[in-house]
Design a protein around this nucleic acid. Sequence first.
DNA 1: CATGAATGAGGTTTCATTCAT
DNA 2: AATGAATGAAACCTCATTCAT
Lengths: 207, 207, 207, 207
Amino acid sequence: MTAEASRRLGRPPTTVNGQTVPERLVEVALRLFAERGFESTSVQDIVAAAGVTKGAMYHYFGSKDDLLAEIYARVLRLQLERLTSFVQQDGPVAERVFAAAADVVVTTIEHLDSTTVFFRSLHQLSADQAREVRRERRRYHDLFRGMVLEGQRSGAFRDDIHADLVVDFFFGSVHHLPMWWRVEGRSSPVEVGHSFATLLLDGLTRP
Amino acid sequence: MTAEASRRLGRPPTTVNGQTVPERLVEVALRLFAERGFESTSVQDIVAAAGVTKGAMYHYFGSKDDLLAEIYARVLRLQLERLTSFVQQDGPVAERVFAAAADVVVTTIEHLDSTTVFFRSLHQLSADQAREVRRERRRYHDLFRGMVLEGQRSGAFRDDIHADLVVDFFFGSVHHLPMWWRVEGRSSPVEVGHSFATLLLDGLTRP
Amino acid sequence: MTAEASRRLGRPPTTVNGQTVPERLVEVALRLFAERGFESTSVQDIVAAAGVTKGAMYHYFGSKDDLLAEIYARVLRLQLERLTSFVQQDGPVAERVFAAAADVVVTTIEHLDSTTVFFRSLHQLSADQAREVRRERRRYHDLFRGMVLEGQRSGAFRDDIHADLVVDFFFGSVHHLPMWWRVEGRSSPVEVGHSFATLLLDGLTRP
Amino acid sequence: MTAEASRRLGRPPTTVNGQTVPERLVEVALRLFAERGFESTSVQDIVAAAGVTKGAMYHYFGSKDDLLAEIYARVLRLQLERLTSFVQQDGPVAERVFAAAADVVVTTIEHLDSTTVFFRSLHQLSADQAREVRRERRRYHDLFRGMVLEGQRSGAFRDDIHADLVVDFFFGSVHHLPMWWRVEGRSSPVEVGHSFATLLLDGLTRP
DNA sequence: CATGAATGAGGTTTCATTCAT
DNA sequence: AATGAATGAAACCTCATTCAT
């Protein structure tokens, strides 16, 4: 038992393989939602796969929807963090856009399940939750669009196509990755990232 | 009475506004599946919206899944027909790719509901149905890829990016349209088609 | 076309393999009821197996129950006819009982499906139909019991066991035949009939 | 509180008149299946008669079929236990057979509903369940046949009739009891048992 | 004589959630 | 912190029957 753990009061949380029960539940739910869809996955399926009982799940999460909301929160947080780090870098805008574009492809492939669930299950969220997700998603979109706009103003990028359209064009490609990318397939994540970023940049660069 | 008509027996099918019951059912189901998702739409919802009874639905469709399968069959048929017509045209390959790309965007926007359901509900199909859909989808992919390959061999297109990746890149953008395109939005279907086709072609053209 | 048929007016009944439609329906229904049970056989199953439509069935039979009632009527008629012929014969009572007992075994094996349905589906009949069946069944029982009583009075049979019990004892054995007798099994119908009749008679004869 | 009790967790099972919910369900289902047949008894009928909800039933039994399977398991266990005790006794084989035969009649009358359901609803079981039932039933048959064979070898019983036929002959009579035996009828269970055993033994004894 | 369409009631089962401990 | 029992609403589907032709 670590010093930190012993400082806490009461029964320490149950852990399996270093994961707490709620962590396991989210991870298992993510996998099952990606495999079968949210509605086709029962709470019973989730708790059985996580090796706990329903009572335990309802102890940590108010509802099945809350599990989904937590999945959304995690993926949004992760994506925003990574993009922010690229936006804040120095260097020519074209290089920053290229790096960010290539990175989001790689990161998406590393979290394929999250992306699958993200775009398939938006309609399962409550109105409030969906609004919140769209708000966060908008921040992400705007951050990327900011770089595109910067490139257009500086003359590096063509400006005959609206920046919003450019962002939707590229992120469509990214969000579609779970539909076709396979571990056993031809292209590695890095190769796909490089190709997609190249296609974007060359399409975007003033001819 | 024609010979064909005289061969028909039994109570004649009910029609509403010139639509037969199975036609109405598919149309209504498509709308509801797009709005709420397949699993969140009950058979009761569908038949109520179509103004028929459950028995009538099960007279024509073996299951709720069959309704979904019929929706898939229709959209696959439509897409394949349109693409085929572009592939068979004459003229420079770049122009054909541009025209096909712009057209698929416009067509997709005109059938947004179908696309929404298509990419969100694949996992609801039975194994057999899913295999059949993937087979048809593959034919579509190969048709488009054929044009890309032709351009690469003729020297019109860059060949440092695999043709498959190019197709997945572009159709990701297309399939993502239902996530953001709105009637009341800034860009008309034709404008989006032109912009997307331009981004694709300029990214694809040998620099 | 036979002379008899041509004498009838109107369209002659459809026949398949020399069977009329209602005959086919009863035969098919009997087979399916024996295989799967009455409730697990749908009207659709029956008409499909008979190669006609539901309308045709409801043209000849008022309901699914009527089909069952017809099956009961046929088997009752057959059984009663055969037993009557044995009862009316001459000769020692023991020989008549032996012959009747052996015959009912053989006849039952030749109509195993009927017996299966008979004793499994009595509770599916309407109150009226069930009463009627029991009445006919009672006539059959009484006919056989009459021979037993005759033997008891003449001193040929033991009289320390009530004749009713003797009848129920033996016909239990008979009605149970569908539970175990198989074409591919060890004993032929005639052998079983001989053995069962022997066991009955030797048990019945005054020791 | 005992160690065993302290291991139990969760809400304690509801009991009515000392019966747990699953016990009540099996008892009620047995009665209804015997009265109306398996297919004509709805799950709603069962839970209403047992005073619980459908959810409670599906908490304990995976399906309506499982209820039936449980009924079969109970009656098979009971029959096998009783027969085993007779087989293991000492004394002349004829006396053991007589005692076992008379007892199975009495026991069957005491559990008429079970026997009714047993022989009427075999075809409702799944292939697996039916195979298991036939296996157990076979053990029972073989146990009884063993005594008959012993009698034939020792010269106590006739050996011109195959032991299997003897068993099927007698148990047909037994299984048919629910078709005619009534509480208000002429013969008590013990009388029927005595008569049936007598008929069997006298038929079986070497003349 | 026979058809195929359509009904509507009822069937079994699933499932997210709450409860008492 | 966690259990297993129990709920109740709603899901998909079946089916005997009737209808209009």
